[in-house]
Design a protein around this nucleic acid. Structure first.
Lengths: 228, 228
DNA sequence: AGTTTTGCACTGACCAGTCAGTTCAAAAAA
DNA sequence: TTTTTTGAACTGACTGGTCAGTGCAAAACT
């Protein structure tokens, strides 16, 4: 329980992809492949059952390795979880920012950029539903070991959206009366919950379809006259 | 057990337990009062730590009750949790439906009703932040004992919103192109996440303030010309 | 070449501690 | 009296984490 021993050399962990990138390719040592398997096993189990209810034995079994291997690769159960969080949110923010930049490059407006981000968010959630579940479930918890990691990681996501909102306000495209942080949070929530519901209850629907519904809601065409 | 709670430290989120509602006159036996105390204790602990990480001993201690009392009043830890869930969502849906009905009685439009529900939702979350945390954290989990309870309870909430949306569509107030279930889910998500962020990161803001921001977002005045 | 050594990655039985749930005699309300 | 609560002891299963030992492929050596 108590680690008097300070990790002598914090190994720079290079996390690759979340799901198996069918190509082990060069550079990936045996260890790296094992880490990958552990991430994949952990993300689904924790999404389903929660962190505390998921045992290290389960993770090891699912990954097809011995329990000791988990502790050979990660200092503790929570460290494994934290690295999983960081990695996943890294992918998400990269995807969001990339979408916004692409929209800008195409000469789109900031509304277009926001729309592109919503689409990117939906795409991410569709690709990594387990990670999203896990993130939502842990985000507002307090008094947890990885509280600080969670805060850092949340800030990254929200900031990506806030940036676009602010640019839009500066460009006169959005009302300058909007509350940027709150609106960003609300948008995250809208996409998050809509996407999780989509995945959970109407998985047969297409991304385009869901995206269109959310765009409509966002652009205020809900409370308006019937569109032609 | 280890109680390393830092006394008097900065409390990140002031969590108010589910206090007794406006004096439930009937059935207020001694047992009922004990149950209430147990709900209050359980809701905060589980919101903070999650179900699995919360022990029955902790709940009993927090409620100021012996452990045996917990098992005298509830068959098991998960039964306690399920009843807590049902109780809390009952309060929420009642609040939402009451808000919509009140708006109707005042001769408001369906947009007004929706707005009133958003306000009611924010009010509920502000009053019972712990319950909300707990609900969000468990909602999309799978393979859990209380899965069915959770589904029933979710349906109640979403249905309350869907009803108003449908009425609005029928009255020609909302576009008939909107996707009612998805829009309802998105609205829930918007309010949920915005409110939790409000409570966690800007608790000093007023409900009116937050409500105004969300109304603005919903009515599409985000992407529009600057309002006068 | 063939042989020996090195050390990384992995193993799984094991340990010390924890937890949900039980039991029950006695006390305190009602 | 009857109902409800108490509080402590107890059980049996489970859990995070440990550690002496294994396997093996690439070096080092002869």
């Amino acid at each position: 329980m108590i680690h008097d021993r300070i990790a002598g050399g914090p190994v720079p962990v290079t996390i690759r992809a979340m799901e198996s990138t069918s190509v082990p390719s060069g550079g990936s040592s045996r260890r790296e492949a094992t880490r990958q398997k552990l991430y994949e096993a952990a993300v689904t189990l924790i999404a389903e059952q929660g962190f505390s209810a998921t045992t290290v034995d389960e993770i090891a079994e699912r990954a097809g390795v011995a329990k000791g291997t988990v502790y050979y690769n990660f200092a503790s159960k929570s460290v494994l979880f934290e690295e999983l969080l960081r990695h996943g949110v890294g992918l998400l923010t990269a995807s969001l920012r990339e979408a916004a930049e692409q929209s800008d490059r195409d000469g789109g407006s900031k509304v277009d950029a926001l729309d592109a981000m919503i689409r990117a968010g939906l795409g991410f959630i569709a690709r990594y539903p387990s990670f999203t579940q896990l993130y939502v479930a842990e985000l507002w918890r307090t008094n947890r070991a990885w509280q600080s990691t969670l805060m850092v990681v949340r800030r990254e996501v929200v900031a990506a959206i806030e940036d676009v909102l602010r640019e839009g306000v500066a460009a006169g495209e959005f009302s300058d009366e909007i509350d940027v942080p709150l609106t960003a949070a609300a948008l995250v929530g809208m996409v998050l919950v809509a996407a999780l519901d989509w995945q959970a209850f109407q998985p047969e629907r297409s991304l385009d379809d869901v995206h269109a519904s959310l765009s409509r809601l966002l652009q205020g065409r809900v409370s308006g006259s019937r569109t032609a």
